[in-house]
Amino acid sequence: MIIMKTAEDIVIATLALATMSAVPFVSSSYIVFLLNGIMVLALCSLSFNLVYADTGYMNLGNSVPFGVGAYAFAFALSHNWSATLAVVVSILAILFFSALSGIFIVRLKGAYYAIGTLALVLFAQALAYNLGWLTGGYQGIIVSVTVGSAYSAYYILAFLNAVLLLLTAAIRKSSFGYRMRSIKGNEIVASTLGINAAVNKVIVLIIGSLFAGIAGILSTSYNGFVTSESSFGISITFLPVIMAILLGSFSIVAPLIGVTIVALASEIFVTTIPQLTDFMLGILLILAALYPKNLIVLKNSRFLKNKSGVRSASS
């Protein structure tokens, strides 16, 4: 396992887990909500990075499966389907749409792929506004939730983030990881080595989309609503992606620190200078782009060490 090598790593992971599990018991529901928001962004960032770090393909449409999950779950709950059925239907919808878009965009290369995936977000946004019977149009869908939902979402999100982190590391070591990295290294050469780039690209996109989609389901489950903005707005579409692109080259964990800082900063701006929130976030992101290392604060720390050894060449 790449991200847990030493005894020190295991101690840190255990402490982190213990702290995470204790938080809901010792803090207010406000904190739980805040952490949920951060973990949703973290999951989106990791799922984007799963595709990007190894294949080099920028899926700017990662918020589409998020929205599909969020809307499908809200639709099902608002029609009084059971929670289990709602989850199953939402996951099937996520898999269906991610496979569909994967096959649709698989021919695109480089910047065209990024643009194509971004176009899918605009497409999804338009559908969300226009298919009122399905999505509630501009108002979106409201579902009833209890405080308990936030607490369950909290643990599921923490668990899924850990799973995706370990999965990312495991894939990198596997032959699937080698195939994906060869696609990034030189797609034509990869094909002459017998690697079916298209199939690998679609598979990894589906895996990444599944996690982003489940983040969407969970976001509906504790927020109690879904709108086009909450799914396809700047926050889900770009923040996790920006953090993964800026910080992903340092380590697998670095983007998570990035989204945490930006989400906390955003919370502080909203509560202190609400009119200037977007302005301040813009400045923060520009600074992050200029000085990515400083954003992780922990300069020269363990989080900056590229233990995966994967992306040092490209950064």
């Binding site: 990295r181 990034k184 290294g185 030189n186 050469v189 080595l193 017998g194 992306r311 490209s314």
Partner: peptide
């Protein structure tokens, strides 16, 4: 045409798959 971002050993390992 090397597979960039991969080591020499990883290049050969990818081919051996």
């Amino acid at each position: 045409q090397p597979l960039c971002g991969m080591t020499v050993l990883e290049n050969v390992k990818t081919a051996s798959l």
